[in-house]
Design a protein around this nucleic acid. Structure first.
Length: 658
DNA sequence: CAGTGAGCGAGCTTCCGCTTGACTT
């Protein structure tokens, strides 16, 4: 018997080949092979929303190779991932195979980890393609197509040509716009930090107490006048110790990394963009150093857990190995446990080993995160002693608190690279509640509340993931897309909406609040789960969406006014007509300066974003430019005389590249 | 390495999610 096994990735194929004998041929489909057409809607709405699938043009060679292999085989086994998208790939593979080769047996197997036991058990119990699960994917695909290919043309008509909208990207832009609104609306609130030191018996110093509670009638100090009154009262009060507490505390380590958390950590720790992180992870994956890097599962294989425990015991000692193996569950509603968490394939290849040191700088950094988080996740709890002392005044007006933690056992924090100082309290011995103390010193400092931060890659991905919007394979590309469309820009690595982004968001929120709702995806996922469970028909889900969406599209097409997008003004007079003002416009090739009196005056000039750097190759200046695809790069102001250019910030190679 | 925009109404743009190379900028 000759068996053909088809999986989605060549690396998975290679891994499988280690477990299967010569009678198995293993090929990869390289992801999806059939999809809706790109140039048209491709959904026959009047005919039961029938999707008009076609073979993907860039997969023709791959498919041909698979078909050739099918002809030589006695049976075909589809072993794509056990999730919605994996089932769809299997469905379409089966479709194409049965169309081209008659009388071939096509089986479907699934497994959740690539081990001999899992594979053998799957091979012993083959099934068929799960049509319900496939239909859930089909509903997802058709919904996304309808939303995207109906809303986008609406924007072409009502805002500007070439724009796009979609279930994921439009909500991502909305998040950025609303954060910007919050920042604009923000009014700083004044408050005062009050600290005090006390003494007991004129000699025992008790320092570093913070005022945590003030008289109920006046809980907050909002001005200097109020502060003065409070300080005067506090200075006249008598004090006693009102609370003493010593508590054992422990902290367990966090789960190993998944795509989103890896992108977040690399962003906050190294300033990497999500895209840059994925590039490094892809390289590590291809070198066999880490498991698959597009995953939302925190599960670790039993084999790795055993190896990690042995490694921890050997390297750090028995105390660092938890009694029970630590098992993590993926809590996401989407819970598609197709893969493992991202972990080193071999725990003994440490992040500072010779093998890793020879890699590129980005790869070393990303590998370090992956290795550390995976190993830490299997280490024993951190243990500490938390002490708490409270001092209250006798009139019941104020409470001061001193809280500190002393480390008893470092546990997983032995590998915690962010040196964290514990605040220690040494004077707790010998104190008791009711002890009289005197105020020794009172300090105060004026503070203002600060506005929320703009989103960076890390923050945005975190929110998207929490809301179930987007998938591990798409986080990085979503962030790229919304920048390419000109909806948002990065400033100091953080997202700022453009006038275009704000105009489009306002338009969509006004007319399509349901689609722009942060819960839209979550509701859709709920329906998809029902379809997968066979409790709802895919057609019902799609057509009930269409029944309100289609009329709304028609209505807005007819009634909505064209949106005026604000322009950025420069304050500079037009040198040609002397009447208009120069404004920043965004065209196909990026930003440019133009006269506000267009079309009466057609003066234009290049928009130059200057930087602080000089060109390293001539006497020109380094300026920021954009490629036709919208990617930012650094070039010389003397172009085309000087051809110097760079993706990275010059003389600061630590900065991110896009 | 010129040219972009607005609106003429020619033909075109657009979604999300799964994969890797082969390509510049």
């Amino acid at each position: 018997m000759k068996h053909l096994v088809v999986v989605e990735s060549p690396t998975k194929a290679k891994t499988l080949s280690r477990f299967l004998g010569n009678e198995y041929v293993i090929l990869a489909s390289y992801g999806h092979i059939r999809d809706l057409p790109k140039k048209k809607l491709g959904v026959d709405i009047d005919n039961g929303f029938k999707p008009q699938y076609q073979a993907l043009s860039d997969k023709k060679k791959v498919v041909k190779k698979i078909i050739e292999a099918v002809k030589d085989a006695d049976e075909v086994i589809l072993a794509t991932d056990p999730d919605r998208e994996g089932e769809a790939i299997a469905y379409h593979l089966k479709y194409l195979i049965e169309q081209k080769v008659k009388k071939i047996k096509v089986k479907r197997i699934t497994f959740h980890e690539i081990t001999a036991e899992a594979i053998n058990s799957a091979l012993k119990n083959p099934g068929d393609v799960d049509l319900s699960l496939f239909e859930a994917q089909q509903a997802r695909r058709v919904l996304d197509r309808l939303v995207g290919y109906k809303l986008s043309p609406l924007l072409w008509r009502k805002v500007r040509k070439g724009l796009s909208a979609g279930r994921v990207q439009s909500v991502a832009v909305r998040l950025i716009c609303e954060r910007e609104d919050e920042i604009r609306r923000f009014v700083p609130q004044e408050y005062w930090l009050i600290e005090a030191d006390f003494v007991k018996n004129k000699s025992l110093k008790l320092g570093g107490f913070e005022l945590v509670r003030l008289h109920k009638a006046k809980p907050k100090i909002g001005s200097e006048k109020e502060l003065k009154e409070v300080v005067r009262d506090l200075k006249q009060s008598g004090y006693e110790i009102s609370k003493l507490q010593i508590k054992e505390v422990k902290k367990s380590s966090m789960p190993p990394l998944v795509t989103s958390t890896m992108q977040q950590m690399a962003s906050t720790r190294f300033g990497f963009s999500a895209h840059r992180t994925m590039r490094a992870a892809q390289a590590l994956y291809e070198k066999g150093l880490i498991t698959y890097h597009r995953t939302d599962s925190v599960h670790l294989s039993a084999k790795f857990v055993d190896e990690a425990r042995r490694f921890i015991k050997k390297s750090y000692g028995d105390a660092y190995v938890p009694v029970k193996k630590r098992i993590f569950k993926t809590k996401s509603r989407v819970a598609q446990e197709a893969h493992e968490a991202i972990r080193p394939t071999r725990v003994d290849v440490t992040y500072d080993s010779e093998k890793i040191k020879r890699l590129g700088a980005d790869e070393i950094k990303v590998y370090s995160l992956i290795w550390l988080k995976a190993v830490m996740s299997q280490m024993a709890d951190w243990k500490g002693k938390q002490t708490l002392v409270e001092v209250a005044d006798k009139k019941g007006m104020a409470v001061f608190r001193n809280q500190g933690v002393v480390e008893v056992f470092d546990g997983w924090r032995r590998l915690y690279w962010q040196g964290r100082e514990d605040k220690k309290i040494e004077f707790i011995e010998g104190l008791k509640v009711g002890d009289q103390v005197e105020l020794a010193d009172l300090r105060y400092e004026q503070k203002f509340t600060s506005p929320p931060n703009r989103y960076g890659d890390a923050g945005l991905i975190k929110v998207l993931e929490e809301k179930g919007i987007g998938r591990p394979s798409t986080y990085a590309s979503i962030l790229q897309k919304i920048q390419q469309r000109g909806y948002v820009e990065k400033e100091e690595r953080r997202f700022v909406p453009t006038f275009l982004g704000e105009a489009v968001t306002e338009f969509l929120v006004k007319y399509f609040p349901e689609v722009m709702d942060y819960e839209f995806t979550a509701k859709m996922e709920g329906d998809l789960d029902l379809i997968a469970a066979g409790r709802k028909k895919w057609l019902t889900v799609v057509s009930s969406f269409w029944s309100w969406f289609a009329p709304q599209i028609e209505k807005v097409l007819g009634s909505a006014k064209r949106v005026k997008v604000k322009v950025e003004k420069t304050g500079e007079k037009c040198p040609e007509c002397k009447a208009g003002e120069l404004v920043v416009r965004v065209g196909r090739y990026g930003k440019f300066l133009a006269c506000s009196n267009f079309p009466e005056c057609s003066y234009t000039r290049e928009y130059v974003q200057k930087t602080k750097w000089k060109c390293p190759e001539c006497d020109g200046e380094v300026i920021v430019k954009k490629t036709k695809k919208g990617r930012k790069f650094y070039g010389c102001s003397n172009y085309p005389k000087c051809k110097w250019g760079s993706w990275r910030k010059p003389r600061d190679l630590k900065e991110q590249s896009d």
